[in-house]
């Protein structure tokens, strides 16, 4: 099963919405930087966010799933046997 919409229709419908989400991201990161230097630049969460943004520029149809995995704890096989 796939989308009944063409890529063109999807882009027409969502272009301004995607643009606005990019602006939200940009402004949020600006806000963190503008608030000054208090060591936050080394916060691992910022590094995760950066990796997430880089992931958006890779090809594929599973970016959402890969972003989810980036922000997920690791599952340890055989945990029940411990």
């Amino acid at each position: 099963m796939s989308s009944p919409q063409t890529a063109r229709q999807i882009l027409d419908r969502h272009y301004l919405e995607i643009r606005s989400k990019i602006l939200d991201l940009a402004a949020s990161l600006d806000r963190v930087d503008r608030a000054g230097k208090d060591g936050t630049q080394d916060d691992p969460r910022l590094a995760k966010l950066r990796s997430g943004i880089e992931l958006l520029l890779t090809p594929g149809t599973d970016r959402a799933e890969r972003v989810q995995m980036l922000f997920s704890d690791t599952y340890v096989e055989n945990w029940m046997k411990k």
Binding site: D73, V76, M80
Partner: peptide
């Protein structure tokens, strides 16, 4: 959030066991 993948996997493990 970050617990979901691991937790869902653990749940499936327990159900299948």
């Amino acid at each position: 959030l970050q617990d979901k993948f691991k937790g869902t996997h653990m749940i499936v493990d327990m159900l299948r066991a």
